[in-house]
Nucleic acid binder design. Structure first.
Lengths: 190, 190
DNA sequence: GTCTATACGAGGATAGAC
DNA sequence: GTCTATCCTCGTATAGAC
């Protein structure tokens, strides 16, 4: 995949994370990349293919980021904090998680894109579950529920926090408050 | 507001709750209502007005439902259960909360619709907060956080649960598991 | 690889007859 | 109130020149 293709995906990603799948167009991309919209079809044959590749790249990058979080920090509690900060970062540009916003449009997504979205949630939940299990065994975290359930609740909550934060005037602080509580709910009470 | 207008809103509501704002069209409505799409403009001058009225009606109906929950049940814990079941019901037709799905498209909504969405969340959070306060004072509920924070976390979580449930093969049971944990997290442990 | 030109359909909206 | 007819814009996609 060449440079232009990457650039197209970069721009598309920002667009989708802001507006969603149905509301981004080749014209939008063309404007920001500086090529004509017909030229996009040289790199991606269709909107479906473009979005499929976008989700694929996003999933891989996200997994990489999670691995970095593991490496850079041995404390599960700090890892969790970093995980939450990823979502907070997106929000600072009023962007949702790519797969979170796509999930809202599930009914109109091409099947191949739906698949990628599903896979993203499964992967992320698995990572969270492992993190919680580790944290529980070392005492860094004190999950009140089985790690699997705790993970799915956490994932739902962070996605929901991002979702409704966009409907708030002060979206970042709205998210922060919720994120703090999520963290508190799973940390040992001194 | 006459019968046809109501019917248009009924159909529009199902469409939006499934596909979102950008992906529903006058053609879709016209097909299901059985009138031509130009005729819709007699009842609603524009898509913006239609959606604005839709959100307005949804908000009022939702508030009514919440009042009914209060009346039909004096136990805050049971009220909370009923609140969660509202979201579960939508999901059974793979529908999200109208304002939840609109929130994902916030960036492309007309300003007047954005306003309605914001108001919906504020109202709903207030109701939850009052419920939690009542429950805490009678001992029916045992919030771990200040009621206001507990309410916003709960709202975010239930919206998020609905959002990501759509990306799950078994969306209803995925939601149920999360809803049970939400309930457990706020109920007194015997 | 990128361009121009163009096809084709969909979407929202308006005018005017009935 | 609903219809037909029509307008205009935007969206994806293709063909073929450079």
């Amino acid at each position: 995949m060449n440079e232009t293709a990457q650039q197209i995906l970069d721009v598309a990603q920002n667009l989708v994370r802001n507006r969603g799948y149905s509301s981004f167009s080749f014209a939008d991309i063309s404007e920001q990349v500086g090529i004509r919209k017909a030229s996009i079809h040289y790199h991606f044959s269709s909107k479906e293919e473009l979005t499929r590749e976008l989700v694929k790249r996003y999933r891989m990058a996200f997994q990489q980021t999670l691995k970095q979080i593991e490496r850079s920090n041995s404390d599960p509690q700090a890892q969790l904090r970093q995980f939450l900060s990823l979502y907070r970062q997106g929000l600072s540009q009023s962007q949702m998680c790519l797969c979170g916003i796509l999930s809202a449009e599930m009914a109109v997504l091409p099947a191949s894109v739906q698949e990628g979205v599903r896979a993203f949630f499964a992967e992320t939940q698995t990572w969270l579950q492992t993190l919680i299990e580790t944290g529980a065994s070392t005492g860094c975290l004190q999950p009140r529920l089985p790690p699997k359930d705790e993970a799915s609740l956490l994932l739902a909550s962070v996605q929901g926090a991002q979702l409704i934060a966009r409907a708030s005037e002060a979206s970042e602080s709205a998210f922060d408050r919720i994120a703090d509580q999520l963290l508190a709910s799973i940390c040992p009470t001194p």
